[in-house]
Computed example of a mutant assay.
Amino acid sequence: MLNSKATGWSLTMGFVTLVILMGASMVQGNQETKADEIAWLVANEDMQWLGLVEMVGGLTMLVFTAGMISWIRSIDESNAPLTYASYLPLLGLVLSWVGIISSSAAANTAADNADAAYALLRLGDIGGFLGIVMMMLSFFIVGTVSYLKKSGAPVLMGLLGLAGIVGTIGVFIPAFGFVAFMLLFPVNLILVAIIGIQKVRA
């Protein structure tokens, strides 16, 4: 288990990861269909460095995951919901890495095999989506349990639990999914980063 300050700094890496990955996504732009995305990849082969940027995001995500697991276990190692919650960030990390690697592989194969690139992009989307769901579910559990146990700042923990469950459910609602991803997931990461900063300053 990490010490308090190391855990705190690690918790801030979640928002850093989001900024890195969102930045890479903004450079690529928003293509309406997978065919458009493949066409963009073929036309912009010199932009494959974006895959390296995403890998950096994957590494900061690894640091964040270590911080999440350490933080959750420091609250109460004997609590069953928290024990289960401590595995969710790791599962989210694995799924997110599947998404990152698949997307990078799609960029490398788009010019030679559009069908393979399409399949890899779909796999990347699914991996990234499920990774976010696992993360938000862990936020819900740890926030709610911490609030009930009066561990940490009640307002922060209550908001984390609330944003976590609304986001987890919201991503499956077509009309609300985009809002859940673009608003609630960043809010969750900001709340966790604030908790991390509090640990660093303690």
Rank of each mutant, 00 (worst) to 15 (best):
S4H: 04
S4V: 14
K5P: 02
G8C: 04
S10N: 02
G14F: 13
V27M: 11
G29H: 12
E32F: 12
I38R: 01
A43F: 13
D46C: 11
Q48W: 06
V53N: 00
E54K: 11
T60Y: 05
L62I: 13
F64S: 06
T65H: 04
M68H: 03
I69E: 01
S70E: 09
S70M: 13
S74Q: 03
S78F: 08
T83Q: 11
A85Q: 09
P89C: 13
L90T: 15
G92V: 15
L93W: 09
V98G: 04
S103I: 14
A106E: 04
A107V: 08
T109W: 08
D112K: 13
A114K: 03
D115I: 14
A119T: 12
L130N: 04
F140R: 01
V142G: 02
G143S: 10
T144F: 15
V145C: 03
Y147T: 05
K149E: 03
K150L: 08
P154R: 07
P154K: 09
I165T: 11
I165E: 05
I169T: 11
I169W: 07
A175R: 03
A180R: 07
V187E: 07
N188R: 08
I190S: 07
V192L: 15
I194N: 04
Q198G: 12
R201I: 13
A202V: 12
